[in-house]
């Protein structure tokens, strides 16, 4: 059970049941909801998390983001990895 968070290479990240990305009308912002937790999601986080559908691989998500935002792939990869590792440690993303 106690395996460390894997290197993201072949993974297909997804939001597990019980974690929801929601646009909150009252506060006018995107939020990631989990039990007893509310995390504000900025535009980059939203773009990443919307692609974490359990079907796209980590690499495909990075390619897609780099293409969509015409950004440097290495930068994008570092951002995606940092966000997903952080959320995985909080058990808010399954890698």
């Amino acid at each position: 059970m106690n395996e460390p968070i894997r290197e993201a290479a072949p993974s297909k990240p997804r939001l597990p049941r019980g974690v929801r990305l929601k646009h909150d009308e009252t506060r006018g912002e995107w939020l990631l909801l989990a039990p007893e937790r509310v995390v504000k999601a900025d535009a980059i986080a939203v773009a990443i998390l919307q692609r974490c559908d359990g079907e796209a691989t980590f690499d495909a998500i990075v390619d897609d983001l780099a293409a969509t935002f015409s950004a440097d792939r290495a930068r994008v990869e570092a951002d995606v990895r940092a966000l997903l590792d952080d959320l995985a440690a909080k058990r808010m993303v399954d890698l």
């Binding site: 059970m1 106690n2 395996e3 460390p4 968070i5 440690a89 909080k90 058990r91």
Partner: peptide, 10 residues
């Protein structure tokens, strides 16, 4: 530490 990534402890 033992359960990092397995269970979140509040």
């Amino acid at each position: 530490k033992t359960y990092a990534g397995v269970i979140v402890i509040d």
